[in-house]
Lab assay of single mutants.
Amino acid sequence: MSGNGNAAATAEENSPKMRVIRVGTRKSQLARIQTDSVVATLKASYPGLQFEIIAMSTTGDKILDTALSKIGEKSLFTKELEHALEKNEVDLVVHSLKDLPTVLPPGFTIGAICKRENPHDAVVFHPKFVGKTLETLPEKSVVGTSSLRRAAQLQRKFPHLEFRSIRGNLNTRLRKLDEQQEFSAIILATAGLQRMGWHNRVGQILHPEECMYAVGQGALGVEVRAKDQDILDLVGVLHDPETLLRCIAERAFLRHLEGGCSVPVAVHTAMKDGQLYLTGGVWSLDGSDSIQETMQATIHVPAQHEDGPEDDPQLVGITARNIPRGPQLAAQNLGISLANLLLSKGAKNILDVARQLNDAH
């Protein structure tokens, strides 16, 4: 009898209710805020589980004197976190989706994509230029951005401005803007500013005609071990179906173009009346040469937790077992079709030249 009692006690200790789920994140304040929001949602869904947040620095956090596009290494903000995932030191990792490459290392998958916040870019102005827009900034004003995508589009749109690289986390960039006289304004992701509670610093939100956004911008991705079915089931509740389908289309477009950090590629997606609209573009580094096109596809946005595919093969690095396969494939095909259209119009040449120029500098 006593033996059975011990077995029952052991089973209770090993039951999922007692389990601590370890969540990996970057150390920056924004990353911690984003991770806290994901953990809060998981806690609400699984009140019996405990969650421990483990923060670590990544290569991208450490190399702050070089433009991201020049470092010449993929997975700048993800490699150390993936290493911890691989060694079973954490069970899942919360990322900004735009930091996750469209091809993940073997053994990993994006197990959830959370509801997207505003994906557009924002302009934050130096205190002396508050009330201005990019259009009304004085001639030769210097605007800071760490992104080739932003610089290429904005140089084309605002030729009277000069664009220079600015690195560091959000706090560091804002301090550089406010305390030094080098920059009249800087460009940042609206979602990051909003998550930090800095709505009052948003001086201008850039519309798609001015600057399309990065693939996955404004959404959070939760990376897990691809074979860890328990954790895949656990994080599945975080999937937002519309965000998922938009981001599958965007990531398929980028992957098929073979774009990345070192080339200016941008997108804009919208879901309306059962249609998914995808606009994508590529630019030369100075913005003088560009190709942009829009395509659409009829896609039914499923309700969360309709029964999805059981075999769960990944699409552009994403596993969404609780979302039907048909809409996911339709979104992926839309991204591939748009990429093929741009490639047929000469996108590869623009991107190759951009890559060579970026590598040469």
Rank of each mutant, 00 (worst) to 15 (best):
P105E: 06
I71R: 05
D121V: 02
Q34K: 00
Q356T: 03
L245V: 09
P241M: 15
A347F: 03
H239P: 07
A122R: 03
D286W: 09
E73Y: 10
Y46N: 14
G107F: 13
L177H: 03
A360S: 09
V316G: 09
A44F: 12
L285I: 10
K98Y: 01
S75I: 10
P313N: 08
E182G: 15
R246T: 08
K132I: 11
Q217P: 07
W198H: 11
D65F: 10
S344L: 02
T243G: 11
F158A: 10
P264S: 15
D359V: 05
H239R: 02
Q304W: 06
D228A: 12
W283A: 03
K70M: 14
G144K: 08
Q296E: 11
A330N: 13
L278V: 06
K132H: 10
V142T: 11
P208M: 12
V267M: 15
M196A: 12
T102C: 04
A152R: 11
Y46A: 08
A297Y: 06
I205E: 14
N322Q: 10
F77W: 10
S45W: 11
D240I: 06
A347I: 03
K115P: 13
G168N: 04
L49I: 07
E223A: 04
V282D: 04
F108L: 13
P105I: 07
I166D: 00
Q34W: 00
K227H: 04
G168V: 03
R32C: 11
G72E: 12
K62H: 02
E250R: 01
N200Q: 00
C211F: 15
L68P: 08
E73P: 07
T78N: 10
V237P: 14
L285V: 09
R22A: 10
E306Q: 12
L148M: 14
L245H: 09
V222L: 14
G221T: 06
S75V: 06
R156A: 13
Q29V: 07
R195H: 09
V90P: 01
E89A: 11
P324R: 13
E117R: 07
A112M: 02
A360N: 02
I166Y: 07
S75D: 06
I350W: 15
V215C: 15
T319C: 11
V90R: 01
S262Q: 08
E117K: 07
G281N: 00
L341V: 10
T25P: 00
D286I: 15
E210D: 09
R255G: 11
N88W: 13
R22M: 05
A270H: 11
S57H: 04
L238A: 01
Q181D: 08
V124L: 10
L334H: 00
G221Y: 04
G236D: 15
V93P: 03
G317L: 03
L42F: 09
H120W: 13
V267T: 15
V142P: 06
L334G: 15
V222D: 02
G203C: 13
I113E: 00
V202A: 10
Y277N: 10
L232H: 07
S96H: 04
L76T: 10
T279D: 04
L64R: 09
P159I: 08
R32D: 05
K62N: 15
V202R: 09
G72Q: 04
C261Q: 03
I231E: 01
A122L: 05
P241L: 02
V222M: 08
D65Q: 08
R156V: 12
R246L: 10
E179N: 12
K87Y: 15
D240Q: 14
L341F: 06
R167L: 08
A249S: 13
K128T: 15
V353K: 00
E135M: 14
Q275D: 05
G287E: 01
L334W: 08
K140F: 10
D311W: 08
L315C: 15
M212A: 02
T279E: 07
K140L: 11
H268E: 15
E80M: 10
G144R: 07
L92N: 12
R201A: 02
R246Q: 14
A252R: 02
G259W: 03
S290W: 15
T109Q: 07
E223F: 00
E293K: 11
T294I: 13
V23T: 03
L170F: 11
Y213Q: 06
Q50K: 14
A330T: 01
P241A: 07
N169F: 05
G287W: 02
K43M: 08
E293R: 09
S288R: 03
E209R: 09
T279K: 04
G236Y: 00
T298Q: 08
L245E: 04
G218V: 05
N333D: 00
K70I: 13
E258R: 01
L206F: 12
D91I: 04
I54D: 06
A152P: 07
H300N: 12
K176L: 12
V124G: 05
T41Q: 09
S337Q: 01
I110S: 02
H120D: 09
L64G: 13
V265I: 13
G144H: 02
I53R: 08
L100A: 03
P302S: 06
S337K: 05
Q194M: 15
A191R: 01
R150M: 05
D230S: 13
L68Q: 06
S184R: 12
L343Q: 07
V143A: 13
E306V: 14
A330S: 07
D121F: 01
I205Q: 15
L315V: 04
T35L: 06
P127T: 11
L85M: 10
A31R: 00
K157M: 12
S96T: 01
A189C: 10
H239Y: 05
H300P: 10
T136V: 10
E73H: 15
Y277D: 11
D228E: 15
G317C: 14
Q217H: 04
M196P: 00
A252G: 06
A297F: 00
D228T: 03
P138C: 10
V130T: 08
T59R: 08
I187V: 09
I323L: 14
G24T: 03
E223L: 10
S165I: 09
I71W: 07
C261W: 07
K98E: 00
L100E: 13
V142C: 13
L104A: 08
A55M: 07
H239T: 14
S165E: 06
T78M: 04
K74T: 07
H239D: 13
I63F: 13
E242M: 05
L174E: 04
L177G: 01
G111P: 02
A67S: 01
A151P: 05
V215E: 08
I166T: 06
K74R: 05
L343G: 10
L42M: 09
L232E: 04
I205C: 13
E209C: 14
R173W: 01
Q314P: 11
D352F: 14
A266Q: 04
G335K: 03
A297K: 01
Q292A: 08
A219F: 00
H120G: 09
